[in-house]
């Protein structure tokens, strides 16, 4: 335990004093800030018209300002934080010859990898929490709406999911830094996997759906085929952590959304209900809807870390 704490403290120190962290933090803080500012200005103009809206505070995070909302921004580029913090964590030590020194000290070998992972998670948490707090304070001043208890809870859950989502990519990059000796290879491999899972899987889902259940553009498509097509698209795209994450956070941050599925998949009664009754969902119900998504996200994060843990423990370290 003591070794774990020493490694954790050293890594945390390294993260906070590194240029890459400062650059990353500046970039993400700036973009989130601008996005929320735009959303805030937009909201202020429309607040009279939206007099009936509840949860206006959360709209700071979910309203697309210029191009995307804060929530969408984190789902697109949040993984970069994890990748940047982890891609050279083990192989840099190997290259400079400090890994052998570390593992020949009287600490358990897992203290090294646990310390590194936990320091990364702590950095991610501090980064996200501070950005959300800054935006909240800013929104408070700009829009002048005070968050209710439920909104605070929703933000809290949003933060937890986001920390796991970004930690997943931290885990992936640490795994690659264990597997590949070269820092360039491990960084490229983790970025490639990120781009593939985040952007190409959703494209691939469409291709797969159209191949299995082709929709005819000229003739009217049978409802069964339409449903099949949509179902395949949704299932395939769920293998992307980004889709899992954005579906989960959309529901949590926006109480007006009642399903993760598309409108095609709803039964007629549901369609009528959702268009007639514009009442927000209570928090418990929102959580129930995205519970599978959250569980899956947390599970793949843990599985990913477990794999890197096992590989590292079994590996022979010579330098």
């Amino acid at each position: 335990m003591q070794g774990l704490f020493v490694v954790f403290r050293k890594e945390l120190c390294d993260h906070f004093s590194s240029y890459r962290f400062v650059i990353l933090f500046g970039l993400i803080a700036m973009v989130s800030f601008i996005t929320s500012y735009m959303a805030g200005v937009h909201m202020k103009e429309n607040l009279e018209a939206l007099s009936k809206t509840r949860f206006s505070f959360l709209m700071l995070f979910s309203t697309p300002g210029a191009l995307f909302s804060m929530v969408q921004f984190v789902s697109f580029f949040g993984p970069l934080i994890g990748l940047v913090l982890g891609f050279d964590s083990i192989n840099r030590e190997r290259a400079q010859g400090t890994l052998i020194k570390l593992v020949s000290q009287p600490i358990y070998r897992d203290a090294v990898i646990n310390g590194k992972f936990l320091a990364g998670v702590a950095t991610i948490s501090i980064l996200l929490v501070s950005i959300v707090l800054v935006i909240s304070g800013f929104g408070l001043a700009l829009v002048g709406v005070v968050p209710g208890i439920e909104e605070i809870w929703r933000l809290f859950i949003y933060l937890i999911i986001s920390i796991f989502y970004i930690s997943l990519w931290l885990g992936v990059s640490i795994l690659f830094s264990i597997l590949f000796k070269s820092i360039a290879t491990s960084s490229l491999a983790s970025v490639a996997l990120w781009i593939f899972l985040s952007f190409f899987v959703t494209l691939g889902a469409e291709v797969a759906a159209n191949a299995i259940a082709p929709m005819d553009r000229k003739k009217e498509t049978k409802p069964e085929i339409l449903i099949k097509n949509t179902r395949i698209k949704e299932r395939v795209s769920l293998s992307s952590p980004m889709v899992l994450y954005s579906k989960a956070t959309e529901i949590i941050i926006n109480p007006m959304r009642k399903t993760t599925g598309s409108i095609v998949m709803m039964m007629p009664m549901e369609q009528i209900l959702s268009s007639r009754f514009q009442n927000p969902l209570p928090l418990g119900q929102s959580v129930i809807i995205v519970f599978p998504h959250m569980t899956a996200l947390i599970a793949i994060t843990l599985i990913c870390f477990a794999i890197s843990y096992l590989v590292f423990i079994k590996q022979e370290i010579r330098t």
Partner: peptide, 27 residues
Amino acid sequence: GYLPENVGFYEDLDAIQSLEYVANLNG
């Protein structure tokens, strides 16, 4: 105590910090 061939260091630390880290790891 093991001194490997081509021992490596954390280049951005100074001698005292480096020794402190090893001392901490040894409790």
